[in-house]
């Protein structure tokens, strides 16, 4: 039974990848043809999300643990959280649907990278137990997803400032507001993820903070998000200037989530492989 589920999971991920690719394609066609309707993009995304959720669930049942151990699992979970966040935002405010044109390609990339690294299953090591770990990774998933929405909005602001018409995109003020609001959420979630991670580290290693490169860069990212919010709130940074900073913040977030454990020796490398 377990083996069947684990064999099914990568296939479901491939189907989800195709679904997201179609959603991204339809989204881009909608953009190019300047049509108003995002119904097909949403329908494709919804279908891909359902298959993706099934994939994650079968893996969860098959491996006996949540999607937080291998790179394949983490990338898939980050992608899933991003799609859910975008769909919720789009459902609440229909004007934000065109953000899918930025979110979907990133989601595709994440799942593609995950499949490329391989869906091998690893069993949970002794340190990977407890509620603090679950909270730690869950908050980072949501922080990444809200950060991606902010990045998407900022990317559109930059594209518009470079002379692209982007008639299909939401008004500049709405994008600016969305980038700010979602960055605020990413900042909050990232902060709580950092704190819950330090409590998990305490239970695992007997220390809250060890200046591990992943920990340090995670703190740096959180602070840089803080600088962005501070500049917006108190120094009236708006438009393209703030958007460029947001893109830098999100790049830093990517570096600290995926890059640090690759380039440096860290206690996280052992797991995130």
């Amino acid at each position: 039974m377990q083996e069947t589920l684990l064999a099914l999971d990568p296939r479901l991920h491939v189907v989800a990848l195709v679904g997201y690719a179609l959603a991204a394609g339809v989204g881009i066609v909608t953009v190019v043809t300047r049509r108003e309707s995002w119904r097909w993009t949403l329908a494709m995304s919804g279908f891909a999300l359902a298959v993706h959720s099934a994939g994650l669930l079968t893996r969860w049942i098959g491996s006996g643990h949540g999607p937080y151990l291998t790179r394949y699992e983490l990338l898939s979970a980050y992608a899933w959280a991003s799609v859910v966040t975008w769909l919720i935002w789009s459902w609440r405010d229909g004007r934000l649907r065109p953000l899918g044109a930025v979110v979907m390609p990133v989601v595709m990339l994440l799942i593609g990278l995950g499949l490329y690294t391989g869906p091998e299953v690893r069993m949970l090591p002794p340190t990977f137990t407890g509620i603090w770990l679950t909270l730690h990774v869950s908050f980072y998933f949501v922080a990444f997803a809200t950060g991606l929405v902010s990045f998407g909005a900022s990317a559109l602001i930059i594209a518009r400032s470079l002379g692209t018409s982007l008639a299909w995109a939401p008004p500049a003020d709405d994008l600016d507001g969305l980038a700010y609001r979602s960055a605020g959420l990413a900042f909050s979630f990232w902060g709580v993820g950092l704190l819950t991670g330090s409590i998990w580290a305490y239970y695992s290693w007997g220390r809250f903070w060890g200046w591990d490169p992943v920990e340090t860069w995670s703190l740096i990212t959180w602070l840089v998000f803080g600088v962005y919010l501070h500049l917006r709130r108190f120094y009236a940074w708006r438009g393209a200037r703030a958007a460029v900073l947001m893109v830098a913040c999100f790049s830093l977030a990517l570096l600290s989530l995926f890059g640090t454990s690759l380039f440096t020796s860290t206690v996280h490398s052992e797991y995130f492989s």
Partner: peptide, 29 residues
């Protein structure tokens, strides 16, 4: 003050970036 908060955050980011280049564990433990 807003300026102090901004300056502290930027300084902390700079120092932490330098710290991350030091051998692991050399800062505190």
């Amino acid at each position: 003050s807003r300026l102090l908060a901004l300056a502290l955050m930027i300084l902390l980011v700079t120092v932490l970036a330098i710290v991350s280049l030091l051998p692991q564990g050399s800062l505190l433990l």
